[in-house]
Every structure is written in C-alpha cells, then in structure tokens.
Design a binder for these strands. Structure first.
Lengths: 226, 226
DNA sequence: ATAAATAGATAGTATTGCTATCTTTACTAC
DNA sequence: GTAGTAAAGATAGCAATACTATCTATTTAT
C-alpha cells in the first residue's frame, strides 16, 4: 500500500501555489532548511534564492514576503498535525485515550503518517517551536486573521477542544485549555533545550518528562471539581 | 511618604546605563512608545532618534541594537514584577493566599508600587505580552543566556516556583509550572484580545475570566494527587 | 583651567526588502 | 508547425535598515 496525505492550503497563504511547481517546492524545502539553520530573523529571500540557484524576484512570485512564508510553513504544520490527530484517534472510543494521543501527537512521539515529501516534519517541528509565535505576535495580526491565515491553528485548537468536551462535557474552558496545551508543549520544549532552569526536565528522557508534565497538567485540570 | 523603587539592571543589558543620563531615559521612554505603537519589527533606531531629536549613532552608544533594547525593557519588567511579588506577598503566611497574589500581580490587577518614572507599566505590560518571547526565541539564545540576559525572568520563575513549593512541598514540577503560568497568562491575554476564538473569554469581564482560568489551572494542578 | 566624558553632526557602507522590466524557455491549442 | 500564454531567469535599481567611523561641540568633574 502506497499513499500520501496531501494538504490543501488556503489561497491567501501564497501568491502562487508552491506545491504546483518544481521551483515552488524547492522554495519551500529551502525555506525550511534556512529557518532551521539561520532562524527566521537571519533568513532572507536573497540567501534562499542563492541556495537553490534562482533569483530573489522569482521567490516574490510565490510569497509576498518572508513573514508570509513562515505563516505558510506553520499553517501547513498545523494542518498536518490536525490530520495526524484525526488519524491517530480514529476508532478510539475512550475519550481519555484520545487525549493521551493528542499529547503524543503534539510531541511527535509516534511514527507519523507520510505527507508530501517536501516537508521534513522533524525539522518543521523545531521551526514551529522556535518561530511559530512570530507568525501571530505582530501588530498586523488582525489583518492577517481576517485573511484566515490562522485558520489551521484555530481548527486544531477546535479539534482538541472538542475532545476535551468529549472527556468532560461540562468543562468551561475547552478552547483556552486547548490553546494553552499546544503553547505549553512548545515553549516548554524550547526551555528544556535552551533555558533548562525554567523547567524541571534535566535528566535523560526529557521528552518523556515533558509528556508526563503535560499529562499531569491536562488531566488535573479536567478531573478536578472545577 | 514619598518613595520609589529603583531597579538595578545587569550591565550586559546595555552599553551605557540609560538610567544615568537624560538622553538614556529619553531613549527608554521613546522605545516603549515605539514598541507599543509600531511593534518591534517596525521600530528602528532611526525613527526612535527622530522622535527624541537625537541621532541614530547616539542610541547605539546605549544599546548594541534593537533586540538588546527589547531585552532590556523586558528584563526591567520582570525585575519590577518580581519586586511587586515580594511586596504584595510580604507578611502573608497562607501559601494559598500568596499564590492568589501571584495571579493578580501577573495580570496587573492591583495598583502597583511606583517605580522610576520613565516606565509606563501598563504600556510595558502590553509590550511584554506581544514582544517578550522574541527576546529569547532566537538562534542566539544560548549566547544571550550566557550573558545573563534572562536572569530576571529566571529569578521571577524561581520566586514563583518557591511559592508553589511552600503551598505544596512535594510538587514535582514547580519550575515548569511557574514558567508555564507566566507564559499562559500572557498568551491567553494576547489571544483574548486578537484571536478570541482561541479562548473562552468573550464577554465583558474578560480579565476576570482569564484570572479565573489561571486560578483553576494552577490550583487544579497543585491540589490533585499528582 | 584643564581633562575627560558625553552628545551632536555628518558621512559612509553593506545588506535588506522590495519592484520593474525584459528575455528566454516550456507547454498548449489549433 | 506555429502562435499564444505562462513561468522562470536575468538584470537593474531604489529606498530603508543596520550599523560604523570620525570629527566637533558641550558639559562635568577635579
């Protein structure tokens, strides 16, 4: 059996769909490489172009600017993650088990379903941890939001919120709980790696400790009287 | 009685101490104004200089670059907040009451102790919400950390972690709990304002709802069996 | 009164973040 | 096979950014 999941992206995320051409795919692939290696701030379209033997101007035909490329990659990741969630929780009936899967998927603990080959999921995960909040922590967040740029993130939160409500139908903070779960997973992962004194994860299986922490946080909030 | 709290900043945060001169204080004050109005990305030292009738070059004598100015402002805020915490919890004996105060201080719910007059705390709070994570979400976080730039943040987390342990001495995740409390407070405040569908705070007293959510999250994690 | 520190003024440079235009190539329809 | 169109390549250019350097004027400390 050979299959792959393809992810349909919102049109506002690009000027020309990068999945439809060889150049577009190279831009995306190199974008991931540079964001990973240089970080968002030090990446430029000129460097990106040089890395794939094309010209700056060609990249501007695909993405308005560097920020939009970031938004694109992050949105792609959220959509991919959302699909993983659907896949991994399919056929499960126990709501607690579903939430357990949510935690594992957020931390990329399981061999995932293959996606379009241009996306290196592990690397993208690292980019999301360090750069994703720069996608919305801007003065133009409202305009960007109007163009639906954050819909994948909202959809993912919505799905998790739904699972929270399956587990605990009267829970009052499903959406905030979902968004803070995602955010906490990512910045704790960042702290763990770079500012470990902000965390309690020092040892070897830091990833498992983080999972245990998130599990504890999530279920203590859902299981209490409230 | 007339007093003010003065905050001693780490030397690595600046090239020349901005508190020691009129120009320095103007730079800081205008920095706050511009970060607030234009956001970090669209602020430049040229604009800043024009706004206070000086030259770009003069600003570079105080701060290495724009990022360092952000780090300085954010560090100042964390130190100020840390002091607020000390002040507000002084003489309290009930550990739960102390943690309640932590929540209120994080959300700036109480009339605070006056600080050096150049800092507009409310505005700074807004900047911290939107920009603070850009201070550490970089590729050079490790170098910056070596220069102690994030010590104020760590100290604040450490203090909150200490209070958590007073309340619950056997709690295993005091530091992660503290850092995620701070981050959650800020992210949720941002979402509430700009991407409200990621939260459950829609109505009028959104700030009180956020407080209730944070209280719920914090105490449910500390009161459970674990 | 003199030296030292600070600030102001001016200039200059490499890079960034674009936009414009023109040419070449590749595919598509008739 | 040719004409037409879309994508990509090539080149140029420009205003703004992020600095650095240097010189002069002013304040301040001794």
């Amino acid at each position: 059996m050979n299959y792959r999941v393809s992810i349909r992206m919102n049109e506002h995320l690009f000027l020309r769909d990068p999945e439809n051409s060889e150049l577009g795919r190279r831009i995306v692939r190199q974008g991931i490489t540079l964001f990973d290696e240089l970080g968002f701030e030090d990446t430029t379209f000129r460097k990106l172009a040089n890395g794939i033997n094309t010209k700056e101007a060609s990249i501007y035909r695909y993405f308005e600017n560097k920020h939009r490329l970031l938004v694109y990659l992050v949105a792609w990741y959220w959509q991919w993650l959302d699909y993983q969630l659907v896949f991994q929780t399919n056929n499960l009936t126990d709501p607690r088990e579903k939430l357990e899967r949510v935690l594992r998927v957020l931390l990329l603990k399981d061999r995932s379903q293959p996606a379009d080959g241009d996306m290196d999921i592990q690397t993208l995960h690292g980019i999301v941890i360090r750069e994703a909040s720069k996608a919305y922590l801007t003065r133009h967040v409202t305009d960007d939001n109007r163009q639906q740029l954050f819909k994948p993130y909202k959809d993912l939160c919505g799905r998790i919120a739904g699972m929270i409500l399956e587990y605990r139908p009267d829970y009052r903070y499903a959406r905030s709980r979902a968004s803070s779960l995602i955010e906490t997973a990512h910045y704790q992962a960042f702290f763990m790696q770079h500012l470990p004194s902000l965390t309690d994860f020092g040892g070897q299986q830091t990833d498992d400790e983080l999972l245990a922490f998130l599990r504890h946080l999530l279920f203590s909030s859902l299981d209490g009287d409230c």
